[in-house]
Design a protein around this nucleic acid. Structure first.
Lengths: 121, 121
DNA sequence: CATCTATATGAGCGTTCATTCATATAGATA
DNA sequence: TATCTATATGAATGAACGCTCATATAGATG
């Protein structure tokens, strides 16, 4: 017979109830967590980061991007789709040509901040 | 015979040399890019984000974390390893028990900033 | 020293994901 | 209308990744 109620997810007994309660308060709801994860996931690929860096100063068409980051047009288009879906880039059409730009100045700022963090690590 | 030199990565001809040159200046070196990608990749998993959120106010032992985020001790340990390797958490041992904490206030700040960005999207 | 406990870790498995290749689409032009 | 061009996209493939399970390790305790 077991006297101690077994923990749901951990077998051990060294628990700090106060800290746990506080930590639980810091949790965010499932929806926010999912969006946050997706947001970071969008930044977590070298090709997509290169695209975002390339777009810092001015809009570029798909062909430009392809040339700048040295990747096939197809690969670039696929990644642009993901960036679009996550609202990190916007685009405008001019005839056949599609110009992409950063959707928001926040985007580049966040990358810069991450770089700063890495630089003094 | 081909007069136009074919582009290395793109078949099209609509190129904007000035913008391309500027964009190339915005590129970062391979090493920085790799570190940046890894940095964001570390944030791009729900379990790891939950761990980081849980650690906002105080250190927690592995068992605490397991309880807070509702995951097995093993799963938590595996993710803690990744967080450690990327210098997002630090730890101290006290007997058997290992206490984890955010390595740097920057970490939580960056998450908060991302959340803010998402909130007014 | 033997055992118990908290944590770490390797192997295996299923899933996700980025690229390539082939092809579709849409706008421009002959 | 037929074709050319810039971009988009579906399918396939291989690599990366997160979880589980089993087990290892290290500190504490009898």
């Amino acid at each position: 017979m077991e006297q101690k109620k077994p923990l749901e997810f951990c077998e051990c007994n060294v628990l700090h109830p106060e800290q746990i309660n506080q930590a639980k308060k810091n949790m965010i709801d499932r929806e926010s967590l999912s969006r946050l994860t997706l947001f970071f996931k969008t930044f977590s690929d070298a090709t997509r980061l290169k695209i975002l860096l390339a777009l810092k100063d001015s809009e570029l068409c798909v062909c430009d991007l392809s040339a700048v980051i040295h990747m096939s047009q197809s690969a670039v288009s696929h990644q642009l789709k993901i960036l679009r879906e996550n609202h990190l880039v916007k685009y405008r059409k001019e005839g056949n040509v599609v110009y992409y730009a950063l959707d928001d100045n926040h985007v580049h700022h966040l990358i810069t901040q991450a770089l700063n963090h890495l630089n003094h690590t």
